[in-house]
């Protein structure tokens, strides 16, 4: 599997469209078990990313592109998602500094660093009904060259069944079982686009 700078840029433009399509769904879910702004926040953040990427087509490498995306998300998303999604791309930027195309271990380590970054920032781990429950199986599948789509779907489906023990949703306790976590859903939208960008 290989990720090129241009393919990552395209994937992010597509992810921005996906966030827009699912804006109301994300917000409705967040209204059930959170503070009801996830769709609005993700839409604002990814539209800002789209604007930046439309203004600048050529990036030196994955690091430069990821850094711009990370800082844009940090500044525009708001809520807990701003620092969390921002951290993903800042970690990509650190790992892929000066790297035009990532493959093999370099590709995997970018994703692993990003996941570690989210865990540290959110003081969370797998099994707490968060975005981590989608990122973890995705990265495991990436490492084992498994089916990425299947991993995303399984992670998303499993996260729906369990109880939230982190973030605002945790205040709703048992009532969160059976409700889709909005952060897990937005992560699945992003990862599905990143998956499309990965080629042999």
């Amino acid at each position: 599997m290989k990720l090129t700078t241009n393919d990552l840029r395209t994937a992010l433009l597509n992810a921005a469209d996906k966030m827009e399509e699912h804006k109301d769904e994300l917000t409705d879910l967040d209204r059930e078990i959170g503070d009801g702004d996830h769709g609005i926040n993700m839409s604002r953040g990814f539209q800002a990313v789209k604007k930046e990427l439309e203004a600048k087509q050529d990036f030196a490498d994955l690091g430069e592109l990821s850094k711009l995306v990370g800082m844009t998300l940090i500044k525009t998303v708001g809520g807990a998602s701003g620092p969390l999604y921002g951290t993903i791309f800042v970690k990509f930027a650190n790992t892929w500094k000066g790297v035009g195309e990532a493959e093999g271990d370099a590709l995997v380590s970018g994703f692993e660093e990003a996941l570690e970054g989210i865990k540290t920032r959110g003081k969370a781990d797998a099994g707490e009904k968060t975005m981590i429950d989608v990122w973890t199986p995705f990265i495991n599948a990436l490492k084992s060259e498994g089916d990425l789509s299947h991993a995303i779907d399984e992670g998303l489906a499993h996260s729906k069944t369990i109880m939230a023990t982190k973030g605002r949703a945790s205040y709703f306790g048992e009532a969160t079982k059976g409700v889709q976590d909005p952060g897990a859903l937005s992560s699945s939208l992003l990862l599905n686009e990143l998956k499309e960008a990965l080629h042999d």
Binding site: I74, G78, G82, L84, R121
Partner: peptide, 8 residues
């Protein structure tokens, strides 16, 4: 997010 943003 107050804590996350502060740490960031």
């Amino acid at each position: 997010s107050a804590t996350m943003n502060a740490e960031l």
